[in-house]
Nucleic acid binder design. Structure first.
Length: 894
RNA sequence: GCCGACAUGGCGGAAUGGUAGACGCGAUGGUCUCAAAAACCAUUGUCCGAAAGGGCGUGCGGGUUCGAGUCCCGCUGUCGGCACCA
């Protein structure tokens, strides 16, 4: 039988090693304490905690783009293990969510059934990749034990308040003590998880409310693209705004890509300015402005249509016009408001007093002022703000010039003058004047809103909350967790006509009458309670799952302090702690990553974790894209049946069944008929080839097109490595124990040195290129000595682990390669006796010289000038200057 | 509109301010074969040249520098985020 490294042989090798890894528990990582502690181990050593953004178990199965990040983290994990680290790497499933619920609604089957079937299929597809995961630590967010702790965290937040003085969360009992009252109407206002009757994004088409983050800029639902209306409804919220400053400031302490940090900063949107009170008949109208320096130019005021003072300020003459305007505004979605090109608004008939000059300025209502930002009221300065100028133009309102370039003019009263000051100086002076005279204060506002936390869905975590007869929310005691989902006859919330603004949410849990109404003894005897029927949003489980990997089976605690401190705790003083490397797509830059940071910080404040941030280092992998092809009718045609023809001019045209088709570039997807699955790659090449190809395609953080045709390059490389060790005809091991020649020794150690640097920087594409170069050198020089082949195999192990194990075993090693020490370069072998010296004339290369590494500047100049080609380039001109970077470069300037 | 990232052969991509195009795909030629596949070897930015060698080349226009794909300024294009945020 031939011993060629074919897909069949690869499959056999891969399966065999996967079985062995599993039976030997090769990737088990020991905990300091608890059920995963290793009694025999004396010392755990240095840890490395690596995480992927865990997958949603979709029914569609995987395409070749999905494993990219999982392969990359596996390469890192395997490399770290060979560096002697105790590596924690596991994969869970984010298994609540709408797709399973939609499937359940259409089939009548419980969402758990389908979700679990999908997980089985996904585990099978992923197992064949040979990922070095500790399977004991896998979980799904729908597991009752996981739900229990998600609910427990919710109760921690429910039973906590944010102390603005200390800038941290504290137990609610301390607030009760501080305020001297336990009155729910007071206390409930301060909880980190609280119920409020406030404007929310109501989506009748989905029958549920949505978080701001789930609403598109077009004012529609991210899912389903239904209109979303602002409605005041009683819903659960998370006080994430309390953490706005810490969420911004601590970005400076984590190792994240700058663009992601910037997106979070922009999302939180901290802006410094001032609150200014304008006196009016209805009392002071408070505005927020980032430009208090332009206060002398405020010629009118604008209130949002929802502003509470509108009614009191409206004069009888304007009552009809204002009522009509407000009614029209309410009926519009946010996007429709923005779609109106021309600004609109009406006078209230009242005026207010500009505190700096006593001017009576008219007060108007206009929908370009949003209730949700600042105070919902602005001072309008047509000279400073383009929108105010536009509105002033439309309504013929006056303008006063207060700015000349960057300098203030026309801005003084008897008490204070800003004239001639720069913007920054003027801001400081006017704010101190406002504060001294009781007209306002310097302040900071945020774009970030509190996190709307309830959904009218079935397939989510139930709230561990019941209501008493006064409708006060009461925590279900920890001993009764988890609160499990009841069986219901119908999994869908009631949905409405997408445009039905007046509809009211009706969650599916409301149908489980027996479940909703319960008798509980919460310490004061059995009483009747009503359960919360909303469920938590999809983000809940992913907001804390990093903690559970560290102690997945703990039934007494979320995570034991010792296990948390070991895996996540800060390792240097002032450090944030957190996962050592978190890899995933940039699409989670704000939502998931902001929510997870918020929960983690709250748990830190309450003393449950020692780390201040969940993810110390974040890395965004790129996406694998694909070409799709459309025929003349605009339908997608199967991409793998399209034929490419290249003209003599080098231009490609594409045909399908002889008909021309158009190529477009984008995602891989079933509907685009361009899906390539990992299973196809396993069958055609084997998992190791697939892994090497994905890692060699380009830098990990850049998106690039999939090209099945190019996978063979990775296979050829692995076949060359195989042949260095195994005779294809006989299957015999051909390695020798010969010493290496100087040239090979030098190439080997340069490779080890270069690959080590590339591994540290996650530059797997160039690391593989260097391994290919080494392999090509060994092949050409006919070197099969284990002195070269063993280090090559060790360096290849993170990328092609099965092949590396097999070669390692055939070289006579009995134990797995997984924890063999990674090769280290000998610095003495990195220096050559002679080096290539580039000789330039006027910056252009004119000669390449082999020179002694120790050559002096004078010697190099002499050698360079002696070259005929250099002399020809100088062409008799005077040498003005010679730049020498010994020993590699000489540049002659004439 | 505001903010950010990116732009290199036919393709994916290499390149601490110092040889532009590593490595891979594809293509062309060859070895092996009755033949083919596979594998292996060679060539492969472009133009002039028999060769030696030379000209031109990293989206466009400037600049800094002995030397710029890389740094600075100004454009263009592509992608991403935010968007009446006061």
């Amino acid at each position: 039988m031939s011993s060629r490294y074919t897909a069949e042989l690869a499959a056999e090798i891969e399966q065999r090693w996967q079985d062995r890894w599993e039976s030997e528990g090769t990737f088990h990582a020991a905990n300091p304490e608890g059920d995963l502690a290793d009694a025999g181990a004396a010392e755990l050593g240095e840890k490395y905690f690596i995480m992927d953004m865990f997958p949603y178990p979709s029914g569609a199965g995987l395409h070749v783009g999905h494993p990219l990040g999982y392969i990359a983290t596996d390469v890192v994990g395997r490399h770290q293990r060979m560096l002697g680290k105790n590596v924690l790497h596991a994969l869970g499933y984010d298994a609540f969510g709408l797709p399973a619920e939609i499937h359940a609604i259409s089939t009548g089957e419980h969402p758990r059934t389908n979700t679990e079937a999908n997980m089985v299929n996904m585990r099978r597809q992923l197992r064949r990749l040979g990922l070095g995961h500790d399977d004991r630590r896998s979980f799904a967010t729908i597991d009752p034990e996981f739900v229990r702790w998600t609910q427990w965290i919710f109760l921690q937040l429910f039973n906590a308040w944010f102390d603005p003085e200390l800038q941290k969360a504290r137990p609610i009992a301390e607030l009760v003590e501080k305020l001297g009252t336990a009155d729910p109407s007071v206390i409930d206002q301060h909880r980190l998880a609280y119920v409020s009757n406030s404007p929310v994004n109501w989506c009748p088409g989905l029958g549920t409310v949505l978080a701001n983050e789930e609403v598109t800029s077009e004012g529609r639902s991210e899912r389903g693209n239904f209109p979303v209306f602002t409605r005041s409804l009683r819903q659960w919220n998370m006080r994430i705004t309390a953490y706005a400053d810490r969420l911004i400031d601590d970005l400076d302490r984590v190792d994240w890509p700058e663009p992601v940090k910037l997106m979070q900063r922009n999302w939180i949107g901290r802006s410094h300015g001032a609150h200014v009170d304008f006196a009016s008949a209805a009392g002071p109208i408070r505005v927020f402005t980032t430009r208090p320096d332009t206060l002398f130019g405020a010629t009118f005021m604008v209130l949002s249509p929802e502003h509470p003072l509108v009614e009191a300020l409206t004069t009888p003459e304007q009552a009809d016009a204002v009522a009509e305007y407000r009614a029209a505004a309410v009926a519009k979605t946010d996007v429709e408001r923005q779609a109106d090109k021309q600004k609109t608004g009406v006078l209230t008939g009242s005026t207010a007093t500009n505190p700096v000059n006593g001017e009576q300025v008219p007060v108007l209502v206009a929908d370009y002022v949003l209730m949700g930002y600042g105070t919902g009221a602005i001072m309008a300065v047509p000279d400073g703000d383009a929108r105010d100028a536009e509105f002033a133009e439309v309504l013929g309102l006056p303008t006063v010039q207060v700015l000349q370039g960057e300098t203030l003019v026309n801005s003084s009263n008897a008490d204070v003058s800003l004239d001639g000051l720069t913007v920054e100086d003027a801001k400081a002076r006017i704010v101190s004047w406002l504060e001294a005279n009781g007209h306002g204060t310097g302040t900071t506002t945020y774009r970030l809103r509190d996190w709307l936390f309830s959904r009218q869905r079935y397939w989510g975590e139930p709230f561990p909350i019941v209501y008493d007869e006064h409708d006060n929310p009461i925590a279900v005691p920890d001993s009764m967790l988890p609160v499990e989902l009841p069986e219901v006859p119908d999994y869908s919330p009631r949905t409405f006509e997408p445009d039905d603004v007046t509809s009211e949410p009706e969650p599916p849990l409301g149908r489980a009458e027996d479940w909703v109404h319960v008798t509980l003894d919460l310490g004061d005897g059995p009483r009747r309670y009503r359960r919360e029927t909303n469920t938590m949003p999809n983000w809940a489980g992913s907001s804390w799952y990093e903690l559970r990997y560290a102690d997945p089976h703990n039934t007494d605690q979320l995570v034991s302090p010792a296990n948390e401190a070991y895996w996540l705790g800060p390792r240097e003083s002032g450090g944030t702690g957190g996962v050592d490397l978190y890899v995933g797509g940039v699409e989670h830059a704000v939502l998931h990553l902001l929510y997870a940071r918020f929960w983690h910080k709250a748990l830190f404040d309450l003393g449950h974790v020692s780390s201040e941030e969940p993810f110390h280092r974040l890395y965004n992998q790129g996406y694998i894209q694909a070409y799709a092809f459309i025929d003349a009718r605009g339908s997608y045609v199967p991409a793998d049946e399209v034929v490419e023809t290249v003209s003599d001019a080098g231009e490609s045209t594409f045909t399908w069944n002889g008909d021309p088709v158009q190529r477009e570039y984008g995602k891989m997807g079933k509907s685009l008929k361009n899906v390539v699955t990992p299973d196809e790659m396993y069958d055609a090449y084997g998992a190791d080839t697939f892994r090497v190809y994905e890692m060699s395609m380009g830098p990990l953080d850049v998106s690039r097109p999939w090209e099945t045709r190019a996978v063979v390059g990775a296979q050829r490389f692995l076949q060359r490595v195989w042949r260095l060790v195994v005779d294809e005809e006989s299957g015999a091991t051909v390695s020798t124990d010969a010493d290496l020649d100087d040239a090979t020794l030098s190439v080997l150690h340069k490779t080890i040195d270069g690959v080590a640097a590339d591994m540290d920087g996650l530059r797997f594409n160039t690391a593989i290129a260097k391994l290919i170069e080494l392999t090509n050198h060994l092949t050409k020089a006919e070197v099969t000595s284990r002195a070269a082949v063993e280090p090559l195999t060790l360096m290849l192990a993170p990328f092609a682990p099965h092949l590396a194990e097999e070669i390692w075993a055939r070289l006579g090693h009995e134990s797995s390669i997984v924890r063999e020490p990674y090769p280290v370069a000998d610095p003495a072998l990195l220096v050559d006796d002679t080096v290539l010296c580039i000789v330039q004339v006027q910056g252009k290369v004119r000669a390449k010289l082999d020179v002694p590494a120790a050559a002096s500047e004078e010697q190099l100049t002499e050698l360079a000038l002696a070259e005929a080609n250099v002399q020809r380039a100088i062409d008799g001109r005077e040498v003005r200057k010679v730049v020498v970077r010994a020993p590699k470069l000489v540049n002659i300037v004439v």
